[in-house]
């Protein structure tokens, strides 16, 4: 059995504009199935509004899914309550995109990194400080940073603090939600390297969410490509990168600017922008922008089916 598993995971946000207005339902996530093996990195890519962040947050139950199931190491995450859920949180953590908003500006680095330890262990005082120092060293910082405030750090260093906090309770699974998107390239490289080293050293399992295909293909074993709340293609990272099957994956790859001429592809320019997830198109959600759309794509939703060891949801591959 997979280490982390989502079954038919669905999240609808209901937005009420007033007492008398009809509520709008935003389908952020629709019937997502996926499995993540232990020590694996599953990359999730897609454009804004595709539901990738919602997926990550539902998996660790930071937001409540509308329906579906999440299994974590065999345990039904959505069935847990109170203290049981709280103690499961020790094993799954999240790192956000912008460290300056995910770190409380009024807390010192020591208090920030110590927070999960205080919540779950009896460690206090010097024992706690010693553990915090150990964690800081693990992410390339040291005890001279203990009593500083987040704003005194550069973006890359601040993100290391967030990583140290995520590691504090020796988790097994970390959701990385665009952890390098706010950083410069040279700094992004150091954080990506750090994440890879930590994974090898501590046996971590990652869900790596990003809009940047080149980072995702670098760090991931497998990739899931999302469009309007659904997975449209999922499989081995290298294979997807070299021979994308879904027209959306192809367009996404061709639109990603590449430095090397040999990896550059013929540009596929998609028309229009991502439709409103409150009112997604009928049939295949992508048919309104798809260069290869056929007449019945608007009527019939293609299921995610396995083709050569890869999952693709497209009528072209039937």
């Amino acid at each position: 059995m997979a280490f982390v598993e989502a079954r038919d995971l669905t999240k609808h946000f209901v937005i009420r504009r007033g007492w008398f207005a009809r509520p709008t339902v935003v389908r952020a996530l629709t019937g997502v199935n996926l499995e993540i093996e232990r020590r694996e990195t599953l990359g999730v890519v897609g454009e804004s509004g595709c539901g990738k962040s919602t997926l990550g947050r539902c998996l660790i139950r930071l937001i409540e899914p509308t329906s579906g199931q999440v299994l974590f190491d065999g345990e039904d995450v959505l069935a847990l309550h109170g203290e049981e859920l709280r103690s499961l949180r020790r094993r799954m953590q999240i790192v956000f995109q912008n460290p300056f908003s995910s770190l409380n500006p009024r807390m010192t680095v020591r208090d920030i990194v110590a927070e999960p330890l205080k919540a779950h262990t009896n460690m206090r005082g010097s024992e706690l400080t010693a553990r915090v120092i150990e964690l800081l060293r693990q992410v390339g910082l040291n005890e001279s940073h203990l009593y500083r405030y987040p704003r005194e750090f550069s973006g890359g260093q601040a993100q290391r603090i967030a990583v140290a906090r995520a590691l504090a309770l020796n988790p097994d699974f970390i959701v990385l939600d665009e952890p390098t998107s706010a950083l410069d390239v040279s700094v992004q490289a150091t954080v990506v390297n750090l994440l890879e080293e930590l994974q090898a050293e501590l046996g971590l399992t990652y869900l790596f969410i990003s809009h940047d295909l080149s980072v995702v293909q670098h760090i991931s074993n497998r990739i899931a490509v999302m469009y309007l709340g659904e997975i449209v293609e999922m499989g081995n990272a290298e294979e997807i990168f070299h021979s994308p099957m879904h027209p959306y994956t192809q367009a996404l790859l061709s639109a990603t600017p590449m430095v090397d001429p040999e990896t550059r592809r013929e540009r596929i320019i998609l028309e229009g922008s991502v439709p409103n997830p409150a009112n997604p198109p009928s049939g295949c959600h992508f048919h309104t922008r798809c260069p290869a759309a056929m007449a019945f794509c608007a009527d019939e939703k293609p299921p995610l089916r396995e083709i050569n060891g890869r999952l693709v949801a497209c009528h072209l591959h039937e």
């Binding site: 992004q188 990506v192 890879e196 080293e197 980072v215 293909q217 670098h218 760090i219 290298e238 090397d260």
Partner: peptide
Amino acid sequence: ALPRPSARRKS
């Protein structure tokens, strides 16, 4: 520093 497809999973 750029991640490149030719050097996957190398630091």
